[in-house]
Design a protein around this nucleic acid. Structure first.
Length: 457
RNA sequence: GUGGUUGUAGCUCAGUUGGUUAGAGCGUCGGAUUGUGGUUCCGAAGGUCGUCGGUUCGAGACCGAUCUUCCACCCCA
């Protein structure tokens, strides 16, 4: 064999059984999305660089895959920028297109571009791959699927409630035994910054306190100090680390804590509404947790922030989401509030694999494999197969009269439920011998009986 | 982008302080067994030791670069 072929880092091939398992996840998500009134759209896998750059912060730009200009466009390279050591500008002149980094920003572009063709509130779902030039790690790939659902054109909180119900329903349907939906509100985080007197440093503060469960109180304090947060402010932040109890109890404590902040109070009111409604409507299996330290999410979240974690497995968040009041504003369309969620299908896949949650039936092969005994028999089998397929029954014929052992082994490998043995005797009787590949039982039956039996299952 | 780690047959891995022809299990293929698979037995094929360069009489082993794997940061699904 020559040089072994390979694929780029952070990418994967999927075998048929894996595709079946992934399809099962996608279908489960789609079913719930449709049920809640979302319609599918698709956008191109690459966008103009200008659409994506600057939308995810500095870190985000670094992780966007760029597509090198080709042909005559190469001449557009801004050599002056290179000489002036302006690498960012030089890079932009080399690559006018880039692979999409998520589905939300392209969706905002889509809404602005098609605003006259849409009715608002517009509810769409979108299941497509995205690409990030990140270092691969456990549950982290360079190419992965996001399954988004968003609503734009309404600031109603009933959508926040719906999204919580959707997280719950999808993951319950997939059979995840234990998972938590964490919820917070950007306005509460703004309130905290305000109460501390460090309004401008909200990002630094939230990024630091988000790491609480990872690096502990001391770690967070250290990071806050490094980010030049005043000692008084840190003293004000500290009580947040100790906050414990039920969602209601934390809510009450936060009400007091944020008493002096209008925006903070607003956040509390929004969150209280969502928690209250969710409690009334009842979740199937999810736990919902108000987590003051939850600050994940892109720079554009302005209201609710969601994150879902599978408990009992070592895996980052499997879903995320939140409200963004001005995403379409970036493309020149003001006053269009949006809220949405995303399922990380690849991580959910890894979790389900680890917990063995995939139904056995997903990896079943054809219903029936005809064993090939020779030319005449093959012709007869093709005739029977034609009738089975007309009835929607998946079947296949072994392509040559190979040794029986080999054919049976093939039937095992492709996980055929049955094999059909058709030799001279069977043809003479216009019947087939049907063998159950699990039990080994054999029965002789007519074609009509065969169709009836296989359709039943 | 920073720091560490990994790479030997299709897969999982041995391979001594640098020394002749690089091994095992599983899988694959053939046979025992030309109308019966998952078991068993016998046999065979399969490797420029990730790649390129260096040190050495001699490199799978040592050094450098690069790619890849996994992990911790950054960030995130």
């Amino acid at each position: 064999m020559a040089q072994k072929p390979s694929i780029p880092k952070g990418t994967r091939d999927f075998l048929p059984f894996e595709v079946a398992q992934r399809t099962y996840i996608f279908d489960t998500i789609k079913e719930v999305y449709k049920k809640f009134g979302f319609a599918p759209i698709e956008t191109p896998s690459f966008e103009l660089s200008s659409t994506l750059l600057g939308k995810y912060g500095e870190e985000g730009d670094r992780l966007i895959f760029r597509i090198l200009n080709s042909g005559e466009k190469m001449k557009k390279a801004d050599v002056q920028a290179l000489e002036a050591d302006n690498l960012a500008r030089f890079a932009n002149s080399l690559a006018e297109k880039a692979l999409r980094y998520d589905l939300t920003v392209p969706f905002a572009r889509f809404v602005v571009q098609h605003q006259n063709e849409l009715s608002f509130p517009f509810k769409r779902y979108q299941i497509q791959p995205v690409w990030r030039a990140d270092r691969p790690q456990h549950g982290r790939y360079q190419e992965f699927f996001q399954c988004d659902a968003d609503v734009v054109g309404s600031d109603s909180l009933i959508y926040e409630v719906d999204f919580v119900l959707m997280f719950d329903e999808v993951l319950t349907n997939l059979g995840l035994p234990d998972f938590s939906i964490k919820i917070n509100n950007r306005k509460i985080l703004s309130g905290i910054a305000e109460v501390c007197g460090e309004t401008e440093k909200i990002v630094a503060i939230t990024v630091a306190i988000d790491k609480l469960d990872k690096i502990g109180t001391d770690g967070v304090v250290k990071e806050l100090e490094e980010k030049n947060i005043s000692a008084e402010a840190i003293e004000k932040i500290k009580p947040l680390f100790a906050m414990q109890g039920s969602n209601e109890e934390i809510l009450q404590q936060m009400k007091t804590y944020l008493a002096s902040s209008t925006i903070g109070q607003e956040g509390i009111a929004e969150l209280e509404f969502v928690l209250d409604q969710v409690a009334k409507l009842a979740l199937k299996r999810a736990k919902i947790e108000f987590d003051v330290t939850l600050a994940r999410g892109l720079n554009y979240y302005t209201g609710a922030i969601f994150e879902v974690k599978a408990n009992g497995v070592q895996m980052g968040s499997i879903c995320g989401g939140g409200r963004y009041d001005d995403l379409t504003g970036l493309f020149g369309m003001k006053g269009m509030s949006g809220v949405g969620i995303s399922f990380g299908a690849d991580r959910i896949y890894d979790v389900m694999n680890e917990l063995n949650l995939f139904p056995e039936s997903l990896t079943k092969g054809v219903k029936l494999l005809f064993i090939n005994f020779g030319e005449k028999e093959q012709a007869f089998c093709m005739y029977v197969a034609r009738q089975l397929r007309n009835e929607g029954i998946a079947c296949d014929i072994y392509p040559s009269a190979a040794k029986l052992q080999k054919q049976m082994k093939y039937a095992n490998d492709i996980r055929a439920t049955y094999t059909a043995l058709v030799g001279e005797t069977e043809i003479a009787e216009n019947k087939i011998t049907l063998k159950d590949m699990d039990s080994g039982e054999q029965t002789r039956c007519t074609i009509e009986e065969l169709i009836l039996k296989l359709k039943e299952e």
